[in-house]
Each structure stands twice: as structure tokens, then as C-alpha cells.
Design a protein around this nucleic acid. Structure first.
Length: 698
DNA sequence: ACCCTATTGATTTTT
DNA sequence: TCAATAGGGT
């Protein structure tokens, strides 16, 4: 077994690095700790927390002070809490939760910041509507601008009166949308000629009205307008209802910290130690907040220690600060760790080549030799078949089983759906009116691992599949199947009978499954009905009600009078309901993160922070709208110095994504590139060594 | 031939 | 949301 024997010298060196962190903590010297993938970064963070607890804990307690530990995701919060163990002097949280706790009590000042923001928004919107000379903006508002002042006012009044109709018709195609206002807008010239522009103009007018109304209420000190609130469940602000979301929380926090010295002092005095995990993902404004805290505390001579932990090469999201951190927070002491505790030496040398910066990792293990890294390329006619073939080649070669899984990394969720066997399910959802209009929701509402984020219909289907799968699986504990209030009041005989009845639920399509559920429901006793009621939350339990529910939710603006439109939408739901239930099962397994199969598919992005023994990476030229993301990367990798700023930025982003994906592998790594690589073979070989063609019919 | 409008199809992730 | 493209009008 490899990766088990650690060199003594390296242990000493690792200890010395930790000692360096301790020294900085003691000297109250802000640090940035950088370590590559698999280096034990989180370990260093937790070790630092423990050092602070042990050496400063009682002092902190005496002064009613705490340590702040901030990280990027709730999953990471839970992991740190678990690994650290319980401590009442460390507040581990996401950045948003912590910032909100810093500012939420200062509502009077927040209200001023909020009012300013709304005023600025109104100014911007009024400018767009009337005077902004930007060609794209001018084009949209041109028809409105050509109206006389008098007509502008009457148009505004008319549209405000028609608000309900406007929103109800919003999703229709242009012909049907125009029909809604037929003839009634003729006096406003060509206002309705371009429906896209019309919607934009009217939305702008509504927004301005909402904001002005809100500002008036704030000025009048209306009860409902005296406090603002951070709402983490939405992705965007609803400023006129005194709610704001993630980005605005950071913006408000920075404004408050900038403006009020007392706030800086309160934060610094309450939290003399601030440790930030995954700094590369942190919003630059947050770094600015930290810098301000640090400068102010120095000025008033109150000690505050700030420590950043992360890796600039793993910054794969655009809003993360990445390598810019040093220009935003000055005088940070750099501490680096060069060890890798994860991978075999060949993989380490590849990922070193990818990151090509000042961190060249070496394995901490003496026995780090291992299998080589492979890079194949091919130009198949059918990508799915090619990937399937490539994966099965490695299932054999690496002796893949449920105990030795193969993890296959691809770029899109759509491809995962195809490879995991629920492509029809995915396509029908993505093609529904609701998900077409809100394209980005397909990922969050249909494919999220966080069940709380599932959309209404995905969530309803999830519950049904869960019931069916639980009933089929003889190992399912009763407590999973039934809620306590149901099983606790039943006799054993009644319980047995209940299970017997429920087990009649079968079906190899969703319709069949639903039919049997509703049959069991109508034939069943009170307990049976209770169980089913918990799964399907509808007033009336019948097939047609459920069908109508799904139809309505996936087509929220369906015009029931339009026969063609109605039939079309109905057909899609029928298709969805008649799919092989196996597609639902595969989808269920995917979102439940409980893939039983020996091959598991992931997106590159979603693997951040985890590691796998056997990794296959599927790569191609394009990603999203960028037709040449990886092509450009490999074409420039030998000498990226000539790139302009924008190209450089894209290059870095691709590099980091490649770094994150390749560095997941512990033992085996093989890449399959699904495009012609002849124009950049030298670039690929610079990173991966030899390349070879792959052919499914080898 | 050119301009404008409508439709279509496409990335990932987190708070 | 947004860029690319199809399609209609002049």
C-alpha cells in the first residue's frame, strides 16, 4: 500500500510551518496561508483555532470575546465544526451569516444606507428611461422618449392600472402578448412594436414607482418601513419591500464599516481573532472590510488578528478575490506549505505543471510512486457512446467495483443527466415553460444536492420516488418510511397491515405509479391515507388533480383558452409521466448523492474539496458560450505572457478549473479530450506528457 | 441588402 | 440572462 510512510524531515518541516502560524498569532501579525490541493489546509486552520483556544481562551472568555471563523459554504461550516469539536468561544459560520450578525442590530444606520441605495437606483432608472446615451439603452427606451410629457404620464398611469394583466401575460409570445393590449395603446405610437422593449420600459416604470412609494413610506416612518432584513433564500434584492440578498448584504456591510468607526471597534473588540477559510472565493469587498477593521484596530491600539487560509489556484468563481487579495489587504505575512498528502507523485507533478506558480508540491510520503497519468483524444460522432466506452475501459483496467469507485468528471449537468441515465427526464423539464423562462433554475431546482433547494415539482416527485424506493428496499428502517406520529399509535398488527397495503404501490412509469398510489389511497384506511397525504400534499388526491398541479406549475402562464398551446403543454407532461420509472430512480440517486453504482459522475466544479482514488476527466474545446475555452488554454499554456488582460483572466480561470479537477485524483487519472487537439498537442503534452488517440473500437 | 424583431438555446457554483 | 440566429419587413 502506498501513501503511508511519512518522511521524518517532512514532519519536522510541517511542524515548523505550524509554528510559524503560531508565532504570527502571538505577534498579532496578519497572515495569508497558502497551500495547494490536498495539502491539509483545513487541518492547518483547525490547528490554528485550537492554538488560539488553548493560549488565549481564558483571556477571551474573561473579556466576553470570541474567535470568528468564516468559510464559504454551509457544508464547510459543518465540517469545521465537526473537526474542531464543540467550543463556545469560536463562532464558525459563513461570511454572510457573520456580516449580518455584525450589522443587523444597527437598524437606524442601516436604514440610511438602504435609503441611499434606493435613491441611487431610482436615479439610475430615471436616467435610463429618459437620458442615458448608451446606444443599447437608448434603443430600448427610444419609443418612450419620443412621447410628449403629457403622454408619458398617461402611459404610466394606464400601465400601472394594468399591472396584473401585464404580469399575467408576460410569458406569452409576442403575438399573444400584443393581443392582450389590442388597440388600447395606439395613441402611444410604436410603443408596443417591439415587445421586448415594451416589457423593459414598463418594468422600469413599475420599479421606479415601487421605489418612490417605498422612499415615501420610509420618510413617513411607517411601521413596516423602519427596518431592513437580509433574506438568504432569494437571489436578488426586493429593496422596496425592505429585503435584500447576498451581494447587497456585503455592500451594506462595507458601507457601514467604512462609515462608522464605532462599528469597527465593536467588531474588533468582540472578535480579536478572525480566521477566513478559502480566501480565494471571498468577495473582494469582504477583504476590504477586513482591511478596514485591521487598520482601525491598529490605530486605536486594540489587537485584532486576521488570518487568511486558501489557495489562489483554486479560485474558480468570478466573484472570488483570488490572487488580488494582496493588493486589497496590505502587509500580510505569507506562509506557504509545499506538501501534498493526497496524490501519487506523477499526479502531483502534473498539477504542479498546471498551476505553474510559486507552490511546487512534493509528496509528504516516501512511498508516493504510482500509476501514470494518461491523456487520450478522439473526435467521436457520438459523444455519449465514446464516454461510455472510455469509462468501461477503465472499469476493467482499474478493477472498478462498488468498493473501488470510478469518478468521472464532466463539464455540464446536462451531460451528467445523459450519462447517468435520466436524459429524457432532464430534457422535458428543461423544455417546460417555467424552466425555459428561468433557465438557470434547472440547475438549482432540479439538480441541487441540497434538497431544500428543489423546486415545487421536483420536490413533489422526489417525495413520491422516495416513498416508492423505500418500500421496495427491504432494508429501509420503519422510521424512514413512517413518521413517529403514525407508527407510534398503531398496534403491531395494524402496522403490518399498513405496510402490506403500502407495498401494493408499484409501476414502471410515473403514471402507473401514481395510479397505484391513488388506488391504494382510496382503498386504504386512515393510516394509509395519512402516509400518502404526507407524500402528496394536495387538497384532493386523484390522478387528474396531480396531473393538473404539475401542468400548472410547469406552465405558470398557460393560456387555457388557447387549444394548441394547452394541448402542447399537456403532451409534455404526459411524456414526463410515461417515462420509464428508471429515469426517475437515476435522477433520485443523483440528487440524493447516494449513487449506488460503481461509476459516479460529477461536474468539475462540484468536486472542489473532495478526493477520489480513480478519476476520469472528460474534456472538450467548449464550455458554455465559450466555444474555445480549453482550446485557448492549451494553445497558450507554454507561453501565456502575450495575452491581453481579458484573455489572461480567462486563461487563469480555465487553468484553475483544470487544476481543481486534476488534483482530485489520489491514484489514477485519465483524461479524454473529445475534440481535435492537433493544433495544440504541444501544449497538452507540456502538461500531461504523452498523448494518444482513443478509439472506441480499439 | 439591410434593419429590426422574435425566438432559441445555453455554464458552473455559493450565499 | 444573453448572444446567436432565424425570419419578416422595407
Amino acid at each position: 500500500m502506498s501513501l503511508s510512510i511519512i518522511t521524518d524531515d517532512f514532519i519536522a518541516e510541517e511542524n515548523a510551518i505550524h509554528q510559524e502560524i503560531y508565532d504570527s498569532i502571538d505577534k498579532n501579525e496578519n497572515i495569508i496561508f497558502s497551500a495547494g490541493a490536498g495539502a491539509g489546509k483545513t487541518y492547518a486552520l483547525i490547528d490554528s483555532l485550537k492554538y488560539i483556544i488553548n493560549n488565549y481562551g481564558s483571556k477571551l472568555q474573561k473579556h466576553n470575546q470570541k474567535i470568528v471563523c468564516i468559510t464559504y459554504t454551509n457544508v464547510a461550516v459543518d465540517e469545521i465544526k465537526e473537526r474542531l469539536g464543540y467550543s463556545d468561544i469560536v463562532d464558525v459560520s459563513t461570511i454572510h451569516e457573520r456580516l449580518w450578525s455584525f450589522i443587523r442590530l444597527h437598524q437606524r444606520e442601516l436604514l440610511a444606507v438602504h435609503t441611499n441605495k434606493i435613491e441611487a437606483e431610482v436615479d439610475g432608472l430615471i436616467d435610463d428611461l429618459n437620458t442615458n446615451e448608451d446606444t443599447d439603452i437608448e434603443k430600448v427606451y427610444r419609443v418612450y422618449r419620443s412621447l410628449s410629457t403629457e403622454f408619458k404620464v398617461s402611459f404610466k398611469d394606464y400601465m400601472i392600472e394594468k399591472k396584473d394583466v401585464f404580469y399575467k401575460s408576460y410569458g406569452r409570445n409576442s403575438e399573444n402578448f400584443k393581443a392582450v393590449f389590442n388597440g388600447e395603446l395606439d395613441c402611444y405610437g410604436n410603443i408596443l412594436k417591439n415587445v421586448g422593449h415594451f416589457k423593459k420600459i414598463v418594468s422600469t416604470i413599475y420599479k421606479i414607482e415601487n421605489y418612490i412609494y417605498c422612499l415615501k413610506k420610509i420618510r413617513d416612518k411607517d411601521d413596516r418601513y423602519t427596518t431592513v432584513r437580509y433574506e438568504p433564500r432569494f437571489n436578488s434584492d426586493i429593496l422596496h419591500r425592505m429585503l435584500f440578498s447576498h451581494d447587497t448584504l456585503i455592500e451594506y456591510s462595507l458601507k457601514m464599516v467604512r462609515k462608522y468607526d464605532v462599528l469597527k471597534q465593536i467588531i474588533g473588540d468582540s472578535y480579536p481573532f478572525i480566521l477566513i477559510d478559502e480566501y480565494q472565493d471571498t468577495n473582494p469587498l469582504v477583504i476590504e472590510i477586513m482591511q478596514l477593521l485591521s487598520m482601525h484596530s491598529a490605530k486605536i491600539n486594540h489587537d485584532v488578528f486576521i488570518g487568511y487560509f486558501g489557495d489562489k489556484a483554486q479560485n474558480i468563481y468570478d466573484d472570488g478575490v483570488g490572487a488580488n487579495i494582496t493588493s486589497l489587504h496590505s502587509n500580510l505575512k505569507h506562509i506557504k506549505k509545499r506538501f501534498n498528502r493526497r496524490s501519487t507523485s506523477k499526479i502531483i507533478s502534473v498539477v504542479n505543471e498546471i498551476r505553474s506558480d510559486d507552490i511546487k508540491q512534493v509528496s509528504i510520503y516516501m512511498d508516493s510512486a504510482g500509476d501514470s497519468v494518461k491523456f487520450y483524444h478522439s473526435e467521436p460522432t457520438n459523444k455519449k457512446d465514446e464516454i461510455d466506452s472510455f469509462v468501461s475501459k477503465y472499469v476493467d483496467e482499474w478493477s472498478i467495483s462498488k468498493n473501488n469507485k470510478l469518478h468521472c468528471l464532466v463539464l455540464t449537468n446536462k451531460l451528467i443527466a445523459e450519462l447517468s441515465g435520466f436524459s429524457n427526464f432532464y430534457t422535458i423539464f428543461a423544455g417546460s415553460q417555467y424552466y425555459k423562462k428561468n433557465f438557470e433554475y434547472v440547475n438549482t431546482e432540479l439538480l441541487s444536492n441540497d434538497l431544500g433547494k428543489l423546486g415545487v415539482i421536483p420536490s413533489a416527485l422526489y417525495k413520491i420516488i422516495k416513498l416508492k424506493k423505500s418500500l421496495e428496499n427491504p432494508k429501509t428502517p420503519l422510521t424512514t418510511l413512517l413518521s413517529k406520529e403514525i407508527y407510534s399509535i398503531l398496534s403491531f398488527a395494524e402496522l403490518k397491515d399498513l405496510l402490506l397495503q403500502l407495498k401494493l404501490i408499484t409501476g414502471d412509469s410515473l403514471s402507473a405509479c401514481l395510479e397505484s398510489i391513488f388506488n391504494v389511497y382510496s382503498a386504504g384506511n386512515e393510516s394509509v391515507q395519512k402516509v400518502i397525504n404526507e407524500v402528496i400534499d394536495l387538497e384532493e388526491l386523484s390522478y387528474s388533480t396531480f396531473f393538473g398541479y404539475v401542468l400548472d406549475k410547469l406552465n405558470p402562464n398557460l393560456d387555457y383558452d388557447n387549444v394548441a398551446e394547452y394541448n402542447n403543454a399537456k403532451k409534455k407532461i404526459e411524456n414526463l409521466f410515461s417515462l420509464d420509472i428508471e429515469e426517475y430512480n437515476k435522477w433520485y440517486e443523483f440528487i440524493d448523492n447516494r449513487q449506488d453504482s460503481s461509476v459516479v459522475y460529477h461536474t468539475y466544479h462540484s468536486t472542489k474539496g473532495i478526493e477520489f482514488d480513480n478519476v476520469v476527466i472528460i474534456m472538450e474545446n467548449s464550455f458554455g458560450r465559450d466555444r474555445s475555452k480549453f482550446l485557448d488554454y492549451f494553445s497558450n499554456v507554454i507561453d501565456p505572457s502575450g495575452l491581453d488582460k481579458e484573455a489572461k483572466c480567462k486563461f487563469e480561470n480555465t487553468k484553475n478549473l483544470l487544476y481543481v479537477s486534476c488534483s482530485r485524483a489520489i491514484n489514477n487519472l485519465s483524461v479524454l479530450y473529445l475534440d481535435d487537439i492537433s493544433s495544440f498537442t504541444d501544449g497538452v503534452e507540456h502538461i500531461f506528457g504523452e498523448t494518444q488517440p482513443y478509439s472506441a473500437t480499439k
